[in-house]
């Protein structure tokens, strides 16, 4: 559809001015072919990417009997929302989604609050060892999490936090913070010093400078990191299964794995569960696509 639209104007013009002749028509044709080729290539590529998603969406609305007798790869012979019901109610996805939000929202807020404070101090003041502190914090985020799994689960036990959601919030904040500090530091450093000096001369303390000047100016970076960290924390599996035990406390990703273990051959339920688990991050992505892409690029050290 887009192809014809894009192609139409040059073709019209070529006809309207027959004397401009060959070269214009040829160029127009080349453009048409270019457009066709582009949309064919990009369209096929996108299709390839979207097929697995379509398969899951379709599977989630089929009935178990349909899948069992016709196979997973066949066209649907049924339509039912029973899979969603099973996943949402019996499979506990509803509680899991609530748990995920209970963990994700405070963890995102807390990490960004702490990270912005640290980034503010490190970027706007001549602290001793500030570069070292920055790198140590970033380095912690780059550690392979495997090395932390065993000690972290023992640590939460000793604190009596094992199998509680605050433990998961704590470890998410602790592990993610280094990266956010690093990104925000880069951003805050670029804010002109004059702005801060003016405030200092006006008698503002660090808290005022932080909360009323720097933080508002950092809003684009904060928005990008919010979108990004939301998906990271929401999608995490490893930490959740390390510090939690009760199914009633598991966030959605871990619960999805449990759902798969519970409804092994019932692909409609598993597919419905995957749709439920992916929906929130897809919504965040579609709504904040710009911030999202910006966030990924912020992380890239250029």
């Amino acid at each position: 559809m887009t192809t014809t639209h894009a192609a139409a104007p040059p073709a019209d013009r070529a006809e309207a001015q027959p004397k401009r002749l060959r070269s214009a028509t040829a160029a127009g044709r080349r453009r048409i072919w270019g457009t066709v080729a582009f949309h064919t290539g990009a369209g096929l590529l996108s299709l390839l990417w979207l097929v697995p998603i379509a398969v899951v969406l379709i599977t989630s609305t089929r009935s178990f009997d349909d899948i069992a007798s016709h196979g997973l790869g066949s066209l649907p012979h049924s339509f039912t929302l029973g899979g969603f019901r099973a996943a949402w109610v019996d499979g506990g996805q509803k509680q899991a989604l609530i748990n995920s939000l209970i963990v994700t929202v405070p963890a995102v807020l807390l990490s960004l609050l702490l990270a912005s404070m640290a980034a503010f101090a490190l970027s706007r003041y001549d602290l001793p060892l500030r570069r070292a502190a920055l790198l140590v914090m970033l380095g912690g985020n780059l550690l392979p999490p495997q090395i932390l799994l065993i000690p972290v689960s023992k640590l939460t036990e000793q604190l009596g936090l094992y199998d509680t959601l605050p433990a998961l919030i704590g470890v998410q904040v602790g592990f993610g913070i280094g990266f956010y500090v690093f990104v925000l530091h880069g951003f805050m450093r670029a804010i002109p010093a004059e702005i801060q000096q003016a405030a200092v001369i006006d008698g503002a303390g660090p808290w005022q400078i932080y909360s009323r000047i720097i933080l508002p100016l950092t809003r684009p970076a904060l928005a990008a990191l919010t979108a990004l960290s939301f998906t990271w924390i929401f999608n995490d599996l490893l930490w959740a299964i390390t510090v939690l035990r009760s199914d009633s406390k598991m966030p959605i990703t871990a619960s999805l794995l449990g759902l798969q273990g519970q409804y092994v051959s019932q692909w409609n339920v598993v597919a419905a569960g995957s749709v439920i688990a992916a929906a929130p991050t897809v919504l965040v992505f579609l709504r904040f696509q710009r911030h999202f892409v910006a966030g990924l690029n912020l992380g890239a050290v250029k």
Binding site: V105, L114, K249
Partner: peptide, 29 residues
């Protein structure tokens, strides 16, 4: 102190949210 208070409040807030839910989630150990 104001700054520390703000941090404390944030921590407290998240603590409240979570503890209310985990007791509501049944089968707490």
């Amino acid at each position: 102190l104001a700054g520390a208070g703000a941090i404390g409040a944030a921590a407290l807030m998240s603590g409240c949210v979570t503890s209310s839910s985990s007791s509501g989630g049944g089968s707490s150990s």
